[in-house]
Amino acid sequence: MTHENEWPLWEVFIRGQHGMSHRHVGSLHAADAEHAIRNARDVYTRRNEGVSIWVVEAKEITASNPSDKGPLFDPARDKVYRHPTFYDIPKEVGKM
């Protein structure tokens, strides 16, 4: 049996009440983008989770390759000076 009538897979991103960024919440199937938005509303906002929905067809997402994990992410590890705790500020100065 073929699956030629299987609806494409969509990734769903929802922005919640409190001004945070859209967050990936899961996936679903839908015939097209508008249908995906409606399905996302019904599937992923049943508990008052969202005020805005983004959908993108799963196959349109380009992901980083896990085997590149070393070169992609390790170089950031030793850049400790990007973090506030790297800098000692005398107590007398107070909160900074």
Binding site: W7, L28, H29, A30, R38, N39, D42, V43, R46
Partner: peptide, 11 residues
């Protein structure tokens, strides 16, 4: 006919 519609109908 499909899970997404099942959920929508229940809503």
């Amino acid at each position: 006919p499909v899970l997404e519609e099942d959920i929508a109908l229940a809503n």
